[in-house]
Amino acid sequence: MRLAKWHPGKLILLWSWGGLIAALSLTHFLSTPVKNSPGQHLLSFSIAVLLLLALSILTWCWLSRREETTRSPPFQPKESTID
């Protein structure tokens, strides 16, 4: 279950659901005045921000690892031996 080996589809799924939840949280955050329920608003805003941040970090790591694994080692031709 190495991150680099994840299929891009997994990330697309995570981003889809994460984006949906973040959008709903942000909608809740924006829909009513903060002073009505400051605690709930703080929670909504935190969920939206942290979720997007977590997904961004995950994607960043996934891309970085893929770069490392796909980087080919320098070409070293085998020494041919002539009998």
Binding site: F29, V34, H41
Partner: peptide
């Protein structure tokens, strides 16, 4: 009294909105 963090949150809401 409105706490500082509540006021900050309200300002954030305004900006995002």
């Amino acid at each position: 009294a409105t706490a500082l963090w509540v006021r900050l949150l309200a300002v954030t809401q305004e900006i995002v909105g």
